[in-house]
Structure formats: C-alpha cells, structure tokens
Amino acid sequence: MDLAEKTRRRRRREAVVTHLCLILGVLIFAFPIYLTIIGSTHDVNTIGRGDVPMVPGGEAVANYTQAWEAGGGRYMGTPAGRMLANSLVMALLIAFGKIAISLTSAYAVVFFRFPGRMVCFWLIFITLMLPVEVRIIPTFQVMVDLQLINTMTGLVVPLIASATATLLFRQFFLTIPDEYVEAAKIDGAGPLRFFRDVVLPLSVTNVAALFVILFIYGWNQYLWPLLIVNDRSLETIVVGLTKMIGGGDSQNEWNVIMATAVYALLPPVAVVLLMQRWFVKGLTETEK
C-alpha cells in the first residue's frame, strides 16, 4: 500500500470520527428540545406520571391553544401570545437601540478629531466591567425616580447601550481606507452624508451579525424584566415560564408549560435561520 493510499484512508477515518462527534453533540443538545416538543403534545396526566413517550401525542392543538390564549392552566398566568409580543418588542428595541447608539458613537470616535475622544472611548469600554447585575440597585432607583416602573421604556432603556458593539464597530471603521474619507471630502460630502452613503453600506453585514447576537441577548433577559415589571400585561415569556412552574406540592401542567417553552423558542430560532447567511458573512468577511 503506497503512501498516498494510506493518507487517503487516514483522512477518511478522521472525517468519520469528526462527523460522529458532531452528530453526538447535536443529539445531546437537541434531545431536551425534542423531549419538550413531544411533551407538549401529550395530556397532563401522562407527563405527571413521568411517562413521556418518544412519539407525539394527540393533545398538541389543545395544549398550544391553551398556552396561547389562557396561560398555564391552574397557574392562569399571562397568555403566551401576550408574552411573546412583549418579548419581541423588547428584543427588537434593545437590538436596534444598541446598534444605533454603537454605530454613532464608534463613528464619532474614529472619524472625528476632538479633545478627549479616546478618553470617551475608554470610558465606554470599561463599562464592560459593569453589567446590569452589578449596577442593578442604582439603575432600579433611577427608574423609580423617573417613574418608569412597569413601562416598556423602563424595560428597554437600561439595556440599550453596548460597549461590545461599540468596540466591534470601531475596529471595523478603522479598516475603512483613508482614501474613502478624502474622496468624500473632495465631493463635498459632509459627515452625515459620508456616514449614510459610505459607512452604513459597508457595515451592513456587521450590523446583521450583531443584530442576531443582540436580539437573542434581549430575548433571554430575565433578571431585569423580573425586577422592573410587576404588571402582567408587560410580562416577558422568559419570566412567565419560570412563574408557571410552581413550588411545593403544587401540580404543574407540564404539557402547557412545554407548549409555552416551544413558543419561546420560535422567534430566536427564526431570526438565526433567516439571517444565518448574513450572520456568518458578518463574522468572517474581511474585504471592504
């Protein structure tokens, strides 16, 4: 057996082992999701006995309808439809707000020359060490003073700034050739026109990639919505899911809870699937 044939066989074995590991990893991560989907199609007694079949049941329509319209059965919480709408609005506002603020602040730091601009950048950057969980008490007090408790504004504004996105946009803007700036000046383009006609078109893929990340970040928020919102009409689906799970001897309607969990999975999965090409392109593309 020559060396080339041995190399081909070794590569085939490595490819088989790699794919087996990938398949095993997918199965490990996908099995809880599959179990949730299957559980949402059975009645409460089947799941209450701990007897969850591996095949779908016949109660899917009833369970999803109850979760969408009436909440968690005995829990009688906020309907999943309302919670989905609240979470969707919050996630979209957070994503668009973070991108807008980060774009403009990074643009100012890179393309404008003013005293203290790097000080401003580093002040933004060090806020990475101060997440919401660290500053939650003073932030909550500010929201109380501004009378923004139980409002969508109070839910979104403390989460709307992003030092990470500002840093990423700044690093991207630094790669834009200086010739673009000089050409814009020769054409008589001002800062706003240069931003609109040159910087934004070049940043489309980066914006798309960050939108996916920031949307999922906003969608998964738990602690701040739990603290700032007491009004059931503004409850998000992540918080609502935890409240549907009772403690002590209370019997949970796991079939409805699992149906609500499936609802909670749909928007972020849809965003990732719909923007997958832009997401990968934004993270890997280096040509300007």
Rank of each mutant, 00 (worst) to 15 (best):
T175D: 02
I176M: 06
P177W: 06
E179T: 10
E179I: 04
Y180L: 12
V181T: 12
V181P: 00
V181E: 12
E182G: 00
E182L: 10
A183M: 04
D187H: 03
G188R: 04
G188Q: 05
A189H: 03
P191I: 03
P191Q: 08
L192P: 00
R193G: 01
R193C: 03
F194M: 09
R196A: 14
R196F: 15
V199H: 04
V199Q: 08
V199N: 03
L200C: 09
L200Y: 10
L200N: 06
P201D: 06
P201S: 10
L202R: 12
S203W: 09
V204S: 11
N206R: 13
A209G: 04
V212Y: 01
V212N: 09
V212C: 09
I216K: 04
I216E: 05
Y217G: 04
Y217S: 09
G218S: 06
W219T: 01
N220E: 09
N220G: 03
W224P: 01
W224V: 02
P225M: 06
L226S: 10
L227E: 02
I228D: 02
I228N: 06
V229C: 03
V229Q: 06
V229T: 14
D231K: 07
D231P: 01
D231G: 01
S233D: 13
S233M: 12
L234W: 03
T236A: 09
I237W: 08
I237R: 11
V238I: 15
V238K: 05
V239F: 12
G240W: 11
L241I: 15
L241N: 07
L241G: 05
T242I: 13
T242H: 10
K243P: 02
K243C: 07
M244A: 15
M244W: 09
G246L: 14
G248E: 08
G248M: 12
D249E: 14
D249Y: 15
Q251C: 00
N252A: 03
W254T: 07
W254L: 02
N255V: 09
N255D: 10
N255I: 06
V256G: 00
V256Y: 10
I257T: 08
I257C: 02
M258I: 07
T260G: 13
T260M: 11
T260H: 01
A261S: 14
Y263W: 14
A264L: 13
L265S: 14
L265W: 08
P267F: 13
P268G: 12
P268V: 13
V269D: 03
V269C: 13
V269Q: 10
V271T: 12
V271R: 13
L273T: 14
L274A: 15
L274C: 15
M275N: 11
Q276M: 14
R277I: 10
